[in-house]
Write a protein that binds this DNA or RNA. Sequence first.
DNA 1: CCTTCTCGGGG
DNA 2: GTGTACGAGAAGG
Length: 792
Amino acid sequence: MKFYIFDVSYEVEMHKPVILMWSIDEKGRRVLLKDPRFRPYFYVIPMNEADIDDLKRKILTLSKPKSPIISIDIQKKKFIGKEITVLRVTTVLPESVRSYREEVKKLKEVKDVLEADIRFAMRYIIDKDIKLNSWHEVEVRSKGRDPKYRVEEVFEVLSDPKAVEGKDEKPKLRQLAFDIEVYNKDGAPKAERDPIISIALVSEDFKEVKIADNKNDRELLLYFRKRVLDYDPDLVYGYNCNKFDWPFIIERAKLNGVSIDVGRKVGVPPSTGAYGHVSLPGRLNVDVYDFAKDVYEVKVKTLENVADYLGVVKKDERVIIPGHEIYKYWEDPSKREILKKYNLDDALSTFLLAQLFVPFGEQLSYLTGLPLDQVGAASVGFKVEWYLIRVAYKVDELVPNRVERRAQSYKGAIVLRPRRGVHENVAVLDFSSMYPNIMIKYNVGPDTLVRPGEKYDPDEVYVSPIGHMFKKKPDAFFKISLTQLLKMRKEIKEKLKSLDPESPQYKLLDERQKAVKVLANAHYGYMGWSHARWYCKECAEAVTAWGRELILKSIELARSLGLEVIYGDTDSLFVRYDKEKVEKLIKLIQEKLGFEVKIDKIYKKLFFTEAKKRYAGILEDGRIDIVGFEAVRGDWAEVAKEVQEKVIELILKEGNTDEAIKYVKDVIEKLRKGEIDIEKLVIWKTLEKDFSEYKTEPPHVVAAKRARLKGYEFKKGDKVGYVIVRGSGKLAQRAWPWFMVDKSKIDVNYYIDHQVIPAAMRILGYFGITETSLKGMEGGLWTFLRKKSRGR
DNA sequence: CCTTCTCGGGG
DNA sequence: GTGTACGAGAAGG
């Protein structure tokens, strides 16, 4: 029979582990596949001189009746490229692996223990090559219904699941988004004090919201449980629900003595699992916020900002209530309808955002083997790592243990000093997948790296510009992984050409090729991550060195053609767009250096100051592109960003500064008159550390501390929005959380002198405009007098 | 006045 | 908890 498997977990039944595969059958029924045949294991590397059979006997004597060691096999494997003989020790209970690991490690004949930290369900996914969120052929025997599980039928698995190639379609999944509102009068919400006052649910089939009529939230919790169980969703969506909604619900349920077992296992409540995700048995609980974090165009990633930017729910079409005022809308019965609408708009936004993000998440899950609820919560490093672990299994490579290391920095990419000024017709050339291709070409990896003192044949190694050497043979582990990914991407793209872009299959495969790209591009950074299992600083260092060499050689080629190079960063070159010469250059780089370059974009006009990583241009279609300047940074006040953006636009489009100057003066005047919204004056910064770790007291830290005194919770990772008020002393002493400040207290001069003018001058200064001419009274005074006389 | 701390955006 | 390079403001001395 064929099953669409979307989650894998396990449970212990009669002292034995059983793999649970939460699935959908071809009739669209929710079913559970139980595989009782799988057992946990780990590997033991013996000391070189150790007697293997003797060691085997010794390990067997450690066997405990609770979870006996059922077999020890001698196997040949590779470890960091070297052939080694290992013992595979298999036991019964997954949770006993850790204690066996510790005891085995103590034996003097044992060099190391490997793969004892691969979670049991992941072990199954890797070993059986389960492709989550896709179809598998499995031989099964029906066990009928089981009141323990909220599924239509339970099956016992008789054969290893086999992925069905080419069945790139999804069954109809039930999805439910939820959102809660809580009563917090003083500062941040606290579950032990504040009740839930409203819950909204949105699915394809219904939208509803239930508001509490008193401060006892027991009824609300029961309603929530009932509605989830009635609808029986496969996917549950929340926004920041792993960190807020779920912990809050779990705690409130506990206080109320209510069971909140909303998963597909009766009596089992949600619990926090790997990477801080909240797990509901048999359902995929997706925190949409995890995916929203990747929308870097949105600086402050509130639900309404992300939904607005992506166009699913526009801000002006929905209710927005500041977090600290929510309780007021509940206390005043006449305002409760507004609160309900707000709650519903949030759940709706979450639901709609999930439609955009989840298809991509499903494909990341398909590739990495991490179930969808974990793959969003896991960082990029772990996503790459799980992908690598799957590759390792297929090529008999053992997985290195995680080692505590100090981060070691190394030299990175090259950035050219730009030619300042306005340039016309500039082409941006990009190397396609530069670092992955360098890694493939030079066979880079910890397994091919020639270590100090190691013997090598000078003809059989690649030597990096900084001297690190990599053996040409055999293929590096990273090369295998990357080649496979690039090949997969090429094949998918080929297949896409034959499909209707509107078809579900096209959409699915397109998301898959995007996920492949993300994983491939993250390989280089992964090597330089000190917590990586396959950490290799020398490898990362060599890759950036080859990258620098590549760019420099390409510049030489450009110059040999008489092409002017205006700028370049890491894997891009900005050159004067002379069509013929640029095409020649692309060919030359391909032929002489062996790398592919493409024209990424063409600017009609491009403006540089002397600074690196900062430029603004107008593209062929008239769009303005701003990189690096204050206008696109989150830590500048909106008013300054707007001014700079407008100045850039006026200059690139008009070709002179007159309009721009007039515009800046106008904004300054509005600021003086207090006509600018306080929201546009807020500066947002992240607390990157715990309060105690700060050696200095920057403004955002001072503001956050002030909010904390009022009961608002601020901690590492939070964004602090502050404004500057009038007064004396250090700037930080004048920084206050924006929601605690009355507009009349704002220091307008700070915003003029330290936000608007610097942002405008960054551009206008290049054209010889002075600060005083923006601020000066010449223009301002006249307008002032004119208006005054008109007023009379 | 100079150095250090801190942060964010992006190739 | 993927990497380094870079610019800029404000604190600190």
